[in-house]
């Protein structure tokens, strides 16, 4: 695995910034372009880059298979749970206005939770798909 020194150091340098950018896209999605779908894909891009440069084992040490697999249903559950929370608190399914003390804040919170669910599912699914293809090739 002693490939190219520059490549490996460069990857190490750039990885945190890609992750940071993914989080920026996620949390700044309310004010600029971005949101859970894009951030999830960028996050899985980190794993792809890691696998290409350092090999599958290194990538799976950072993002273990088991965690990735649990992320997929977890995201859907976060999303649906937000909806059910509204239901339990006496409004319609996916009506966020009961989540906070005033309606606008509650909607912001609801949108945030839902986007987090989308992020977790998309990142998990894309990474799992990538792992599946790579493992098949060995």
């Amino acid at each position: 695995m002693s490939l190219d020194l520059i490549l490996r150091i460069g990857t190490k340098l750039i990885l945190p910034f890609i992750l940071l950018f993914a989080l920026y896209v996620q949390f700044h999605g309310d004010y600029g372009p971005g949101g859970g779908f894009q951030a999830g894909v960028i996050t899985s891009g980190v794993v792809v880059l890691l696998t290409i440069t350092f090999g599958l084992e290194a990538a799976q040490r950072m993002a273990p298979q088991a965690v990735v697999q649990r992320m997929i249903p977890l995201g859907v559950l976060i999303y649906a749970g937000t909806g059910v929370a509204g239901l339990l608190l006496g409004k319609n399914f996916l009506d966020y206005s009961v989540l906070g003390h005033d309606a606008v804040h509650a909607h912001e919170l609801g949108i945030f939770l839902v986007e987090a669910g989308v992020l977790v599912t998309v990142a998990g699914t894309m990474t799992a798909i990538f792992y599946a293809f790579v493992e098949r090739g060995r």
């Binding site: 999605g29 309310d30 372009p33 949101g35 909806g83 996916l94 309606a103 606008v104 909607h107 839902v114």
Partner: peptide, 28 residues
């Protein structure tokens, strides 16, 4: 209504939450 200036985000996650829940399930 939502305090979010990006209309795409608010429609995606709030006004059309059902759609997005469905899409997430499809990805799952």
């Amino acid at each position: 209504e939502t305090g979010v200036p990006n209309a795409v985000t608010s429609v995606l996650a709030d006004y059309r939450g059902y759609d997005t829940l469905g899409e997430t399930t499809v990805i799952f």
